[in-house]
Design a protein around this nucleic acid. Structure first.
Lengths: 340, 340
DNA sequence: CTGTTAGCGCTTTCAA
DNA sequence: TTGAAAGCGCTAACAG
């Protein structure tokens, strides 16, 4: 049915070994034979079987990418970086959405192990990285994002979430805001919760009142930011600024504020985190704490391929640069008191 | 090094065949042996090698997804649908961004062919589908999106782009707009260009003036919509509404209009196409012509798996439902004349 | 109910 | 410079 290396060998009247050597340019072959082989390949429309190749070489030139949801702009941009770098280096990527479900995440990990990926870029949804043990055992390189890898000898890429929260809140404080709300992610697990810690520290350092009711939970999505903001508004507590744990929730906040007849930034300032592509196009353009996303994806793949290539240095842990991007959703607090 | 089925067989004191049968539940095995096998599997931490399996079975349980750019929300949502459905049916997906480059697209097609995917979901960037021939020859099912597949016996999923353009424009006309601009995609290739045709037809049927200068080119991105709108504004031509060929460009238009001090929809109405997730959260929420995206992805995978399963019915061509979603970016034209 | 074994398509050692 | 052949890990006849 499908044409194999044997067919080519027969047609070109050479051994299968020679065909392989010609195709992969892995041993000197006389021009005549090479020509005959290439001709046969063209005539028969031969397409090499990467599966057989992988079995033999014990290497698939495929990496796994486990994220929460590729439709989330944040992950989408990271995925883009991963795919791009992988492609450039001759690897393809298996897209795995864990959908924030530990079971689904586990099923994907098992799958990737079975499919013998050469490496793994991993965003944990459980918060733990223990399930990576089998990869370590098999010697499959892993780069873990945003997680403490503990004893596990794997590379990791992180951001300083506490610092992010602090930076964002500090920015608002410098603008003169004294009543700052915080929409924090619902998940209690490490990573994003620490953004709220940074918020708390900034508030404390500025000797502002810690108003418990001003810290509400979102769910990382636009709708969650919207809901949380309505809650805040309904609570009757006054505030002139909102720090949202990510851009999605910040965009939701923008919408809810607008619906409530409040102007951003005149009445309320809003700052987000991530700097997703859309942040510059919201109304008004969103002030946010940017973190590299596509670059982070590239970096991860670079790490992976280093190790696939045999690099045996000790585990690296990179902390990504983050910086405040001031756009138009934040402004000086009005001096005549709170509006909301 | 890595533990294979042989190791399990030895440890459980059975044949490799029995191990295989137990693991795949593909032949009755006595409880005792089955238990011994499972125990050995657990003890040795055996992970089946899907590569070997694929080679033997000539089936990879992997499908290829070729799109332009997974960071584009439109494609992201489709990819989500594809991944989700595939996962649910036991398939994994190789993510391939053609990056709108014909060369890159071709390289990915070759790769997918070599990696022996069981099926392919394909968004062509070249506009042609001829390069799918090898898949057809190999009997690998393909679902082509938004393209005329000509003689090729493959399934296709489309939308009526002319109708989309007509619907959007008609909506504006019904609101009393008489001077309607159109931001059309830069690509001349079939698909999206037809949206402009629908615009032209609606204008013609309403006996409105066809003003050449009111049709400008964007590039499908937010920045393109922004640029195009500025152009429109700078041209000095009057218009009270904009039909943008997709939501990205519509969002760009929203931004540019705001920057110019124009209010949407009071001064200018804007309508987009696609209904990406963010469309409901723009300021104001965007009126748009929706097309199913995640569902389209599911559908495509369904088609694929039908054929992988051996279904041999004639090629199907589905036209997706599209419908106008009226939000707040469109309103009745002011009767006192044009603003812009 | 169980085992033996051929062979999927390729790469690569070994020998010529 | 070339070829023969082993074997990657698994499945599925086939035989018992």
């Amino acid at each position: 049915m499908t044409v194999t290396i044997k067919d080519i060998a027969r047609a070109a009247n050479v051994s299968t070994a020679t065909v392989s050597y010609v195709l992969n340019d892995t041993r000197a072959v006389s021009p005549e034979l090479a020509t005959r082989v290439r001709q046969a390949v063209a005539e028969l429309g031969y397409a090499p079987n990467a599966i057989a190749r992988s079995l033999r070489q014990a290497r698939t030139r495929t990496i796994g990418l486990v994220i929460e949801d590729n439709a989330n702009p944040f992950f989408a941009e990271i995925a883009r970086g991963v795919e791009d770098e992988a492609f450039g280096r001759g690897y393809s990527v298996l897209l795995c959405n864990s959908n924030a479900s530990p079971e689904r995440e586990q099923r994907y990990l098992d799958l990737l192990l079975a499919k013998r990926v050469d490496g793994l870029v991993f965003f944990s949804t459980t918060g733990t990285v223990e399930r990576l043990q089998p990869f370590v055992v098999q010697g499959i390189p892993v780069v873990a994002f945003y997680r403490d890898v503990g004893e596990l000898p794997i590379d990791s890429i992180k951001v300083d979430n506490e610092r992010i929260g602090y930076t964002a809140t500090q920015h608002l404080i410098e603008l003169g805001h004294r009543h700052i709300a915080c929409i924090r992610p619902a998940s209690v697990s490490g990573a994003s919760a620490r953004r709220a810690d940074g918020y708390v520290r900034a508030i404390a350092e500025a000797n502002l009142d810690q108003v418990p009711g001003l810290m509400v939970r979102g769910d990382n999505l636009v709708s969650g930011g919207q809901r949380a903001t309505r809650e805040l508004l309904a609570s009757g507590r006054s505030f002139t600024a909102i720090f949202a744990g990510n851009d999605g929730m910040a965009i939701g906040a923008l919408g809810a504020l607008h619906d409530a007849g409040l102007r951003v930034p005149v009445d309320v300032s809003v700052v987000g985190v991530d700097d997703i592509l859309l942040a510059s196009y919201t109304q008004p353009p969103l002030t946010t704490v940017a973190q590299p996303k596509q670059d982070a994806g590239c970096l991860a793949v670079g790490f992976l391929i280093d190790r696939i290539g045999g690099s045996d240095q000790p585990p690296r842990s990179v902390v990504l640069d983050t910086h405040l991007v001031v756009r138009e959703s934040t402004a000086a607090a009005k001096t005549d008191g709170d509006t909301a």
